[in-house]
């Protein structure tokens, strides 16, 4: 217990890194996900195909492999970025594929009549998507998106593979320095639960708030 208190600052530091990693990556993942989902239901076949390839490739490749390829492999072709930026990019690209699939599932919940009504009013495809379909689709998938956010919090630990010292990295460092594994890892577990449990609760509240009652 003393060990945890002694290193409290470092834990807080790690927690902050995890939080900023998660927050930035979530923004990236959300933008990528919505864009790719939109491309995949859009009228232009090559873009639909490109979206599908992206989702299939990324979903079937382990996150660790993406990290290692990007950070250790890509310098050979001149792509060299700082660790933290690399981590945000990889986490965004990885989570983005899952967000895309979730949003696409949301599109399926939007009644066909909504689309027909929008077309009748003369909205263009982009207007229809942005003003009619997307808002309803997103409201339908708040819960699943929340699960993805929790998963992102946990997945951000894999940034440790490229030595981004977030919560898991900090935990590992403190544990190996002090050889006190149990208290340090329990503290980390508690810290992660402090992140994921409130996320679940808040998402639950939002989900109920925005649910479309039919």
């Amino acid at each position: 217990m003393d060990i945890v208190l002694e290193n409290f600052d470092r834990f807080v530091q790690g927690l902050t890194t995890t939080l900023s990693l998660t927050a930035l990556s979530w923004v990236g993942a959300f933008v990528i996900g919505v864009a790719v989902a939109s491309l995949r239901v859009g009228p232009i076949p090559p873009l639909r195909g490109a979206g599908a390839v992206y989702v299939e490739v990324v979903r079937n490749c382990p996150l660790t492999v993406l990290f290692v390829v990007f950070y250790f492999g890509f310098p050979s072709i001149g792509i060299i970025l700082p660790k933290f930026a690399s981590a945000v990019i990889i986490l965004s690209v990885y989570t983005g594929a899952f967000v895309a699939e979730t949003v696409r599932a949301g599109f399926n919940t939007v009644a066909r009549g909504q689309v027909e009504a929008a077309r009748t009013l003369g909205l263009s495809f982009a207007q229809m998507l942005g003003m009619v379909v997307l808002p309803q689709a997103l409201r339908a998938v708040v819960g699943p998106l929340g699960s993805l956010l929790s998963a992102l919090i946990r997945n951000s630990s894999i940034a440790f593979s490229i030595s981004v010292i977030e919560l898991t990295g900090t935990t590992f460092q403190i544990a190996t320095e002090t050889a006190e594994f149990i208290p340090v890892f329990v503290a980390a577990a508690v810290a992660y639960l402090l992140l994921t449990l409130p996320t679940g609760l808040v998402v639950g509240v939002i989900e109920r708030r925005v649910a479309i009652k039919r």
């Binding site: 997945n155 630990s157 440790f160 898991t168 935990t171 890892f185 577990a189 992660y192 639960l193 994921t196």
Partner: peptide
């Protein structure tokens, strides 16, 4: 408990 935190932490 075990669903809430990263698998990596558990493996380490």
């Amino acid at each position: 408990f075990f669903r809430g935190f990263p698998l990596l932490l558990l493996i380490l």
